[in-house]
Design a protein around this nucleic acid. Sequence first.
DNA 1: GGTTAATCGAGACGGTACGTCACGTCTTAGT
DNA 2: ACTAAGACGTGACGTACCGTCTCGATTAACC
Lengths: 192, 192, 192, 192
Amino acid sequence: MSNHPVRPGRKRSEESRLAILTAALELTAELGYAGLTVDGIAARAGTGKQTIYRWWPSKADVLFDAMAAKADLFVPIPDEGHFAEDLRRFLTASFALAAKKPLGDALRALMAHAQLDDEFRARFWKSFLQRRREALGVLLDRATARGELTASAESVADIVFGVIWYRLLTDRPLDGQLAEELVTLLSGRVSA
Amino acid sequence: MSNHPVRPGRKRSEESRLAILTAALELTAELGYAGLTVDGIAARAGTGKQTIYRWWPSKADVLFDAMAAKADLFVPIPDEGHFAEDLRRFLTASFALAAKKPLGDALRALMAHAQLDDEFRARFWKSFLQRRREALGVLLDRATARGELTASAESVADIVFGVIWYRLLTDRPLDGQLAEELVTLLSGRVSA
Amino acid sequence: MSNHPVRPGRKRSEESRLAILTAALELTAELGYAGLTVDGIAARAGTGKQTIYRWWPSKADVLFDAMAAKADLFVPIPDEGHFAEDLRRFLTASFALAAKKPLGDALRALMAHAQLDDEFRARFWKSFLQRRREALGVLLDRATARGELTASAESVADIVFGVIWYRLLTDRPLDGQLAEELVTLLSGRVSA
Amino acid sequence: MSNHPVRPGRKRSEESRLAILTAALELTAELGYAGLTVDGIAARAGTGKQTIYRWWPSKADVLFDAMAAKADLFVPIPDEGHFAEDLRRFLTASFALAAKKPLGDALRALMAHAQLDDEFRARFWKSFLQRRREALGVLLDRATARGELTASAESVADIVFGVIWYRLLTDRPLDGQLAEELVTLLSGRVSA
DNA sequence: GGTTAATCGAGACGGTACGTCACGTCTTAGT
DNA sequence: ACTAAGACGTGACGTACCGTCTCGATTAACC
């Protein structure tokens, strides 16, 4: 009944898995995503290249796993009673995530890679972008139920993530003022 | 008085320049940006690779020049009397641009490349992104003067371009409904 | 006890090695050394260029190995009892070697290459020219012991190889008459 | 009747001709023949590349002309009364030539180039090697008339030039002892 | 306890594209 | 006609990574 039928043979090395993820993150921080190579990861991790190719389809997937392992990418937002505060918290958490040192750069790189590799694009959408939308969706559903939204949930999501990604990709910081203006605009409330 | 003092030597070949730009655009359409190579451009254009490297720093710059040569990237928006209509026209023109066949894909690729190449990122910002912001800026200045804006000009620009790029990069179409919601939200007016 | 401690990793491909040597020799015969390129060898051999660069420092080294593999470059001369006959046999064997079709041309090319590449010059001296001198040295030692030499062993070697190379490099055949005159002059004997 | 019919247009620039020859010699001395390029000569000489290609078939021909302009390549040997002394003087003059700093290296390079370029090989033979043989030929004719030769004139020439070139090409100095041994061997005389 | 099978590190392999270099030719304006 | 300057098409260079393929060794489940 298990989907992990007991197979003979050596088990996957947890040590190698971690070494690879660590190496990927370190190398991205040191050389940038453009300087990240599978050979480089393998060398740094003390691993064979095959071990990487066996478990990840591309170096972008390695990097994504590495990020997911090091950071909480999907922070839940408790119900604060009204959308303005919910959104403020969501934005604050998201801005903090993007500002974290190797994280913002890595996300930019993954979004870039997604434009060049159709298969990764699909995986990135499903495993990250869509899940982020769903996290925001929880807030939007609550707001919709309360009649607090000034635009369709779909558009609000596109505005929120659009602004975040646009600032990230154009290398401009995500500051508190922007958050407040978004809250005001999207919740129909004046900020505190 | 001329900034082109007469220099000796053979003049740059206009024929080669055009052949290269055409080849770059064709190959991007046929193979995608990932399949675009300098060797490929040179072969298709019937030029030497050196001729490409002599005049462009990277294949992304070639592609950008090719796009700029084929499409009007900076459409001016006449004063329609109020911001809602100005913005509607700006969005319609921008959405149309992004939907044009090889153009949207090329823009996605250039934004991606900008994430991997710092020098290109600066050039792309100056020669495209910033100029697009300035085009929108004209509208925003008019609206500010009339007191029509619901948020700071800076944030409005980030929202407009953020939504456009986010939809583009996540491969989802830019539809009329989105435009109307943006107009309503940002101009404080109910759409016609 | 082995000087080949077991190393991990895939073994060097004997098949590729042979294909490269064969291709190098064929292409030299077909196009001349000037037309011999690493790209060409790799294409003909069905290998990657890296495989060539991994194992040989230059195309001249490839060609030398190819020659060494196909021909007996260092024929031993049995003791014939007196230097005149020893030398005659050495010359006959050497002349035959130089006259063999792709061999003479290849040797000319390698000597030429040695003039343009200091590192290859050193390798060519050690792996070919010096070993040829040592082969002749055996004969000269026997002759010295018997008191048959008309000049110092060093000078005799320079004369023998000098004449061979000079004729080769000036594209003039090495004929039997020359051999006889050398034998007479250097052994102090009248030829049979 | 003149073989220099008066032609219209600008005369060949003597200044450029000299600058090119000087540059060729300097660059060969500084970088070695392998580092000698037509672009380099033109840049150093302050000349267009076309001017070089108009007057010389290859960079080797430029270098040969440069050498010929700087050194007396064909020193005549006065009749000293007997072959031994004639030969000694010829060898001394030749050894000195080969030892002169940029000259020996340049000669090595030209001989090498001749192996890779059939047309240059023919020109080099006619304009240098053969003329050197003729210079020696004068001595050999005198010796033949006096019955002093120990081998055919042809073979003696091959031995003399063979030894010189072989030592030169294998980067070993031409010393006085070698000269004496050659004199002894070829003139049938004991050296002074 | 031997057999079978999956994994591991290492590293060689066939490829593709890179960005550079030098070639020899052509074009320009000027002498 | 010749010159300096320099852009051009061509083709080879040597390097970097790619993703795949042996190797021999190690580790686990199965018989």
